[in-house]
Design a binder for these strands. Structure first.
Lengths: 182, 182
DNA sequence: ATCCGCATGTAACAGGTTACATGATTCA
DNA sequence: TGAATCATGTAACCTGTTACATGCGGAT
């Protein structure tokens, strides 16, 4: 269901779009929370059309099909968001590595954590720059800028999460290091 | 690979264990970062034995097989942790919902966020209580307490992440609410 | 004796990734 | 005219979930 809901969300926020467009939108936004390639998105859109959640309103060059969300599609999305008790399961290789950390020699764990801290720190800086650019634009209403309307809260969450990862890695490295010396 | 590495990690930290044991260990620890049921774990252990990463050292009652990690298994785990550039992909329904939030009416989004804040707040409290219990025990070295040695850093990360989610949900709800009024 | 927990497995399905395959349009 | 990008699709494979299936051992 998650993929389906993600696509309905993108169609709601960005308006009618092709599978190709949606694949790129996916990559540049929802990808932080969920992943899917075009090879999964195209068949899913066909199924969604068969289920009446989207319609093909327009066929363009190169067989391009432009999908539009239907009333039923919007209802499904809303129902999924509001009606369902949310699963808070997370699959994260980064968190898994946290569990596996104690299987390493302390000095190796420290090295690993320092690298991670750097990676997440870089990610944090990138996301913060992105937010800066967005809030700077604030006055210039660009209705075509999907990510501006779409990703505001998600971006904020992403920033907080990146910060947590980098702080955790840095502080844990320091803690292990000091316990080596003692 | 992730499941395989998780199992090698559990075998390293807890010592020899059966598939049944590992399934339960999985549920009570790594489950926060990765999920797998016994129906996936049993076949994987058989494959790992075929690949020489674990051996069955002992067969007990009810067909119980006790798996022990081999040198090669330990090497594989270490290599995976240190040698590989880590993927930081995350699949999280919670984060996905953050992206879909703007598709709701503001008052609906606020209600959803308040519920989430509560759920993550409760989770945070539970994890913090768990940490408390652990640090209280500090003097009492219980070598059988796997989670004590295994999950220290992971638990700390989990606490930080739960805190971020609940704070984000609460603050975002407040922000949307104030923007409704204006 | 009966029930619960231990203990292992398989099969069918759902969800996702990688690789293969094809062809149209645009721009330089 | 050649390269890049647009645009869609399928097939094989891997990973994970749900459901089915079976039986032993210990406790009351």
């Amino acid at each position: 269901m998650s993929l389906r809901m993600a696509l309905l969300g993108l169609l709601t926020s960005s308006g009618p779009a092709s599978g190709y467009d949606l694949t790129k939108l996916f990559e540049s936004s929802i990808n932080h929370a969920w992943q899917a390639k075009h090879s999964q998105i195209y068949p899913e859109l066909n199924k969604m059309a068969a289920d009446g959640l989207v319609t093909v309103e327009e066929e363009g060059p190169r067989g391009r099909k432009t999908y539009t969300i239907t009333g039923e599609g919007a209802r499904e999305l809303r129902e999924w968001l509001i009606g369902k008790t949310p699963s808070r399961l997370v699959r994260s290789e980064g968190a898994l590595r946290a569990f596996l950390l104690p299987t390493l020699e302390p000095h190796e764990a420290v090295a690993l954590l320092r690298t991670e801290a750097e990676v997440y720190g870089a990610r944090l800086a990138k996301l913060e720059a992105l937010r800066e650019r967005k809030t700077a634009h604030h006055g210039a209403q660009d209705p075509a800028d999907v990510s501006a309307r779409f990703g505001k809260y998600a971006l904020d969450l992403g920033i907080r999460q990146a910060r947590v990862m980098s702080e955790w890695a840095e502080e844990t490295a320091a803690e292990i290091e000091s316990s080596i010396r003692s």
